[in-house]
Design a protein around this nucleic acid. Structure first.
Lengths: 106, 106
DNA sequence: TTAGTATATAACCATATGTTTATATAAAAT
DNA sequence: ATTTTATATAAACATATGGTTATATACTAA
């Protein structure tokens, strides 16, 4: 692949919050407010991280009424699967969200 | 894997010069002066990039008299092979180096 | 021991990045 | 229409990062 494209990809992954987001989206698509809930960060911060992931084509978005759901993309990167597989399991975080009723909004 | 370890790995890869270095080392081990020759950057700059790659355990070093040879490591990352495979072929750069006699030093 | 070559480190500076606060936009509900 | 909810964008600021120049270290050769 082109070095510039690869650099953009790794820049997008070179942040703990964004790796957290990717690790969460591996389980299921999530909207911004859910990520804010789980990661306990401000909404603008999460939104900007999502924008970087989207610009690198690592995630894609889908609007459903007032919510925007993000999910894993990365199909342009031949190595994406093995990289996602190395991310830690975050299913417990998603379980917590559901248990606390944080899933109501979506 | 641990998110912190993964973040360090992707930070190390999130720079075009360092991806260039990895792409070159994929072909064969090289010393600092050879990388300086090929990439046309200053020696301190190359040295500092190599240090970051080494700290992330993406390369290892081997001293041979006054030269220090760097080569690919990355064995702690289960995905390293697929990521290296996505790097562009740089064999022509190494051929140029050899043709121009830049290989004499090592 | 001295000079030369290869590499590393430190200090400095300019640019990039991540977070926060404030504001804008878009859709839903009333 | 107005208010509320979800999300995006902008401005401001502090920290991180990469490049340069200068200097230190390590090994070699004379």
């Amino acid at each position: 692949m082109e070095l510039d494209q690869l650099t953009d990809c790794y820049k997008a992954m070179a942040d703990k919050t964004r790796l957290n987001i990717l690790a969460l989206l591996r389980h299921e698509e999530l909207c911004v407010c859910e990520l804010v809930d789980i990661l306990k960060m401000t909404q603008p911060s999460i939104s900007q991280h999502l924008r970087k992931l989207k610009q690198a084509k690592l995630v894609k978005e889908r609007r459903n009424s007032q919510w925007i759901f993000y999910s894993i993309d990365g199909e342009i990167y031949p190595f994406i699967k093995s990289n996602l597989d190395a991310l830690p399991d975050m299913s417990s975080k998603i379980e917590e969200l559901k248990a606390s009723g944080g899933k109501v909004c979506c």
